[in-house]
């Protein structure tokens, strides 16, 4: 087992609203929603809206393969040809009511851990959902505070509620800085358990 490598983490709320900029320096759009696959947690892409205060959402979207670089201040793309139809990225039928913000997080043994207030992403060769920032319920001892809970690298497909293994509660972090290590340790534990 390798030691957990340091992870580059960012919140989904830090990505939404970011400008999408081509390598030739033109502003294309702004990120509206982050779209991920519940099984595996991989980011599929982003829905877009036009820049500006009274902006409209757009009929095109940015798939992850079209992203050249994603940083603190902008999402970079080669040019506008990488955009695809929004319906192709997230079919309307699937994306309706599929926002996980404000969803409840339950452990697999049935404890309610709280509501999702943000989603933690890990940026590497791919961008993956690795945890939830939740407003903790009484079940966690830090009730009312915002804490981070890690997700396994293979998340079971879930419907209404977000189910996490009960062991995740042992790897709760109170700050994002320490959370990368917690995700690594949690996943290592799950793999040991499985083998």
């Amino acid at each position: 087992m390798t030691t957990p490598t340091p992870m580059l983490l960012l919140r989904a709320s830090e990505v939404t609203g970011r400008p999408v900029v081509t390598l030739s320096g033109e502003l294309v759009a702004e990120i509206k929603d982050v779209v991920f696959e519940r099984s595996g947690g991989r980011i599929a892409g982003f829905t877009l809206r036009n820049p500006g205060l009274f902006s409209r959402s757009r009929k095109d979207s940015l798939p992850w393969v079209g992203v050249h670089g994603i940083g603190r201040d902008a999402v970079m793309v080669a040019d506008e040809t990488v955009l695809i139809a929004a319906n192709e990225l997230a079919p309307r039928k699937q994306s309706r009511d599929a926002d996980v913000l404000q969803d409840r997080v339950l452990t697999d043994n049935g404890r309610d851990l709280g509501r999702v207030v943000d989603v933690v992403l890990h940026s590497g060769t791919s961008l993956d959902v690795v945890g939830y920032e939740i407003e903790a319920s009484e079940a966690l001892g830090t009730a009312g505070r915002h804490v981070f809970i890690p997700l396994p690298d293979t998340v079971a497909v879930s419907g209404e509620n977000l189910i996490v293994p009960a062991a995740a509660t042992e790897f709760v972090s109170e700050d994002l800085a320490g959370f990368g290590a917690a995700v690594g340790a949690f996943r290592a534990r799950l793999r040991e358990g499985a083998s």
């Binding site: 991920f36 595996g40 599929a44 994306s95 926002d99 497909v157």
Partner: peptide, 22 residues
């Protein structure tokens, strides 16, 4: 209304996308 509309979401897809190799 504008503030609600501007807040981005995090959309979880239940099925992998068509033609998506994993």
């Amino acid at each position: 209304v504008q503030r609600r509309r501007r807040r981005g979401g995090v959309i979880g897809l239940n099925e992998p996308r068509r033609g998506d190799s994993r």
